[in-house]
Design a protein around this nucleic acid. Structure first.
Length: 639
RNA sequence: GCUGGCGUAGCUCAGCUGGUAGAGCAGCUGAUUUGUAAUCAGCAGGUCGGGGGUUCGAAUCCCUCCGCCAGCUCCA
C-alpha cells in the first residue's frame, strides 16, 4: 500500500503500482482535466508513472512554467514525428521547449521551405487527430544504442555517448521513437492548437564549427483561443517595431551608404534624445556625479594598459596610425574616466568620486547581429564610474540601484526585474573583494525591498554585477541598467588613494549605465509606447490647425504663444480640410491637436483634441498651456 | 561570421515562364475655403542595391560584392 496526498489536500491509500493518473482520478477527478504531468515528491513525472512509495502529488498544468515546458516539449516530438513521416531521410537531433514554444533541429540535405512547413503542420494535425499516447520505455544503454544505430540516427548515438546512466528512457508516439528524459503529456491529442512559426539554420550543439542543422520553430497551446491571442501578440509586436516606427515617424535613419549599425538621429528623434540627455544630466548632477567629456580615440598604449587589446580586441575597430603612432576608437569610456581619477592625488576624503559621461563608443559587431537601434556599432552609453572606499561600497550600490529605478520609473517603466551575477570560474580579484562586492549588491536590493534572482557564475571575470531589465507594455523584457564592479582596471592603472592612516589604498571601482545606451533605450521607448511618447518626450507636443485661410494668422499666433511657453508646437495652415490635418497629426502621433476656426478665433479660444482620448473641448489658450505644462512637468505616461 | 529569404520612385508595394518599368501615398502646380482620421485635377519623380556575365534583348537567368530580414553564435 502507498499513501498519496494531493497538493489540493485530498489523501488516500492505494495498491503499490497505481499510476499517478489513477490517484488523481480517485481523489480529485476535476484536476485531471487540465493535468499534463505531475510532480511526485517534487520530481516531474508522467501521469502514467507508477507509484511504489508514499507520495505527495502535484498535478502540473499549462498554467505553470513546468507544464508549458512539458507541453511544448511534447509538441516538438509531434513535429519531429511528422517530419520523419514526410521526409524519412532526415536525422533528428534535439527538440527542447523554449520561452514561448519549441523547436526541433533536423539534419536534412536541403533547407525547409514554407510549403514544407505547411505539409508538416498538416501531418502534425493528423498525428494529433490519431491521439497517440506518449509511451515511456526504459532500455539499457546498449539496447538504445542498437536501436538508434538501426534507425540511422547518428546524432542520438552522440547524445547517448554522453549519458552516464546505464538505463535511458525513450518515448514512443505512434511509429516515432525518441531518446528523451521526459516527462510528456499523456497523448498527442492534447495539443489542440499549434503553428510552425519559422525555419532557421542552427549549429549542432550551438557550435559554429559544427554542421548547420535546420531548425523549425513552433508554438502550441491546449486551446485554439490561446493560440489566437498569442498570434495577436505577435501582430502587436510587429506594429510596435521601432524600425518601422522610426521610419514612419522620421525619428532615425540607418543608411547603407553611411554604414551598417551607424545611427543618424533625424530632427524628431534628436529632439527626444535631447530631452532625455537634459533630464539625465540634471539628475546626475543632483545625485552627486561630475559630468565629463572624453575623446573618441586613444593611443594603443592606453588600451594595452587597460587590457582591452588583449581581451576585447575582436570587438574593436581596427588600428589607425597617425605619425607612426597607433590609435584605436574607443569601445568603452572607462580608461578615460580612470585618467580623470588619476589626474590628482586622491585622499580618502575625496571619495566617493562619481564621474559621468554620455560617452559615444564604437564596437565591431558581427554583421549578422545588428538589429535596428537595439544592436548597433556606434552608440552612446549613459556611462559613469564610481571610485570609492570599501566602507562606501554598500551605500554607493544602494544609491545607484535606487537611482536607476527612479530614472526608469520617470520614463514609465515600473515593472522591473533584477539579476545579480556572481563570481565565474575564471576570475581575478581576491575572494574578499568578491565577497564584499557581491554582498553589497545583495544587501542593496534587500534594503530596498526588491525581488531579485541570482545568476550563479554569470559575472564578468573582473567583478560581480547587477542587471536591471524592464518589462514593456506588452510584457517583453529588455536589458537596460547594469552596475558592475571592476577589480581589474584599478589594478592595471595602479589607482590609489591616501587613507586616514597615511597608507596607500586601492579604491573600489564601479562601472554603471542606467539607460544602457541612448540608442537601445530609445528603441525600447519607441516599442513600449508604440510611438506615442509621453508629452514630455514627444518631438512635437502640439500642432495648431486652421480651418480656413481666415484663421491662418490666429493659428500662427497660438503656436507662437505655446512656443514662448516652452512647448514644442507648430502650426498647420495648409489649404486643406480639417479632417486631412487631423489625420496627418494622428498618423504622426502628435499628442495635442489644437483646432482653430471662426468660432475659436472670435472667442479667443482653441478646440483641443488629445491623441488617445479624443475631443477635450473648447479652452482658453492659457488653459491649454497649463494643461500641457502640467503633463510635461509630471512626466505623465497615461493619457 | 554562418544558414535561409529578400533588395523596383522619398514611403508601401505590383511587374507570370527574359521583349528596354507601373499604382497608391508623400512632393510640386492649380482649383476648392473646408469644423475633428484622407477634396479634386494636372505635373514631376526610377543607372529596378553595385559590378561582371549569358542573350539580338535582362528588373526578370548565372556569378560576385554590398545591405536588409529571420535565426545561430555573441552583447550596451
Amino acid at each position: 500500500m502507498v499513501r498519496v496526498k494531493l497538493s489540493s489536500g485530498e489523501e488516500g491509500s492505494f495498491n503499490s503500482g497505481i499510476t499517478v493518473r489513477e490517484t488523481i482520478e480517485a481523489l480529485n477527478p476535476t484536476l485531471l482535466k487540465d493535468a499534463l504531468a505531475a510532480k511526485v515528491n517534487g520530481v516531474l513525472v508522467d501521469l502514467s508513472y507508477p507509484l511504489d512509495a508514499d507520495a505527495f502529488v502535484e498535478p502540473v498544468t499549462f498554467d505553470s512554467k513546468e507544464g508549458r515546458e512539458v507541453f511544448w516539449h511534447s509538441s516538438a516530438h509531434i513535429m519531429a514525428a511528422a517530419v520523419k513521416r514526410i521526409f524519412p531521410s532526415v536525422k533528428v537531433t534535439i527538440g527542447p521547449p523554449i520561452e514561448t514554444g519549441f523547436y526541433y533541429d533536423f539534419d536534412f540535405e536541403r533547407s525547409f521551405t514554407p510549403e514544407d512547413l505547411e505539409k508538416i503542420e498538416e501531418e502534425m494535425a493528423r498525428i494529433v487527430e490519431e491521439d497517440h499516447s506518449f509511451e515511456r520505455m526504459e532500455l539499457s544503454k546498449e539496447e538504445a544504442y542498437r536501436l538508434f544505430k538501426d534507425l540511422g540516427e547518428t546524432y542520438k548515438l552522440e547524445i547517448l555517448d554522453e549519458i552516464e546512466d546505464d538505463t535511458v528512457s525513450l518515448y514512443k508516439t505512434g511509429d516515432f521513437v525518441d531518446l528523451c528524459r521526459g516527462p510528456h503529456i499523456p497523448s498527442t491529442g492534447y495539443v489542440k492548437a499549434f503553428k510552425l512559426t519559422s525555419v532557421a539554420g542552427a549549429y549542432w550543439r550551438g557550435d559554429e564549427r559544427n554542421k548547420m542543422l535546420q531548425r523549425i520553430y513552433g508554438v502550441s497551446f491546449p486551446t485554439s483561443k490561446q493560440l489566437r491571442s498569442y498570434l495577436n501578440f505577435l501582430e502587436e509586436a510587429k506594429k510596435r517595431d521601432h524600425r518601422k516606427l522610426g521610419k514612419e515617424l522620421k525619428l532615425f535613419l540607418i543608411e547603407e551608404e553611411v554604414g551598417p549599425g551607424l545611427v543618424i538621429w533625424l530632427p524628431k528623434g534628436a529632439t527626444v534624445r535631447r530631452v532625455i540627455e537634459d533630464y539625465w544630466k540634471e539628475k546626475h548632477e543632483k545625485a552627486g556625479y561630475k559630468l565629463i567629456y572624453t575623446p573618441h580615440v586613444g593611443k594603443a598604449q592606453l588600451w594595452e594598459t587597460s587590457g582591452h587589446l588583449s581581451f576585447y580586441k575582436e570587438n574593436m575597430f581596427p588600428e589607425m596610425k597617425i605619425e607612426n603612432v597607433s590609435y584605436y576608437v574607443k569601445p568603452m569610456n572607462c580608461p578615460f574616466h580612470i585618467h580623470v581619477y588619476k589626474s590628482e592625488l586622491r585622499s580618502y576624503r575625496d571619495l566617493p568620486i562619481r564621474l559621468a559621461e554620455l560617452g559615444t563608443v564604437y564596437r565591431y559587431e558581427k554583421s549578422g547581429v545588428l538589429h535596428g537601434l537595439l544592436r548597433v556599432r556606434g552608440f552612446t552609453q549613459d556611462d559613469a564610474h564610481i571610485f570609492c572606499r570599501e566602507d562606501q561600497v554598500e551605500d554607493e550600490i544602494k544609491n545607484t540601484v535606487q537611482f536607476a529605478i527612479e530614472m526608469l520609473g520617470d520614463f514609465g517603466f515600473k515593472d522591473l526585474n533584477i539579476y545579480i551575477s556572481t563570481k565565474p570560474e575564471k576570475a581575478i580579484g581576491t575572494d574578499e573583494m568578491w565577497e564584499v562586492a557581491t554582498g553589497s549588491l545583495i544587501k542593496a536590493v534587500e534594503a530596498l525591498g526588491l525581488e531579485y534572482s541570482i545568476e550563479e557564475g554569470e559575472g564578468a571575470f573582473y567583478g560581480p554585477k547587477i542587471d536591471i531589465t524592464i518589462n514593456d507594455a506588452i510584457g517583453r523584457e529588455w536589458q537596460c541598467s547594469t552596475v558592475q564592479f571592476d577589480f581589474n582596471l584599478p589594478e592595471r592603472f595602479d589607482l590609489n588613494y591616501r587613507d586616514s592612516d597615511g597608507s596607500e589604498k586601492r579604491p573600489y571601482m564601479i562601472h554603471r549605465a542606467l539607460l544602457g545606451s541612448l540608442e537601445r533605450f530609445f528603441g525600447v521607448l519607441i516599442e513600449h509606447y508604440a510611438g506615442n511618447f509621453p508629452v514630455w518626450l514627444a518631438p512635437i507636443q502640439a500642432r495648431v490647425m486652421s480651418i480656413t485661410d481666415d484663421q491662418v494668422e490666429y493659428a500662427l499666433d497660438v503656436a507662437e504663444k505655446l512656443k514662448s511657453e516652452g512647448i514644442r508646437a507648430e502650426a498647420d495652415v495648409r489649404n486643406e480640410k480639417i479632417g486631412y490635418k487631423i489625420r496627418a497629426a494622428e498618423v504622426e502621433k502628435i499628442p495635442y491637436m489644437v483646432v482653430v476656426g471662426k468660432r475659436e478665433m472670435e472667442e479667443g479660444k482653441v478646440s483641443v483634441r488629445r491623441k488617445g482620448k479624443g475631443q477635450v473641448g473648447s479652452l482658453a489658450v492659457d488653459e491649454l498651456i497649463n494643461m500641457i505644462r502640467e503633463e510635461i512637468e509630471t512626466k505623465r505616461t497615461e493619457v
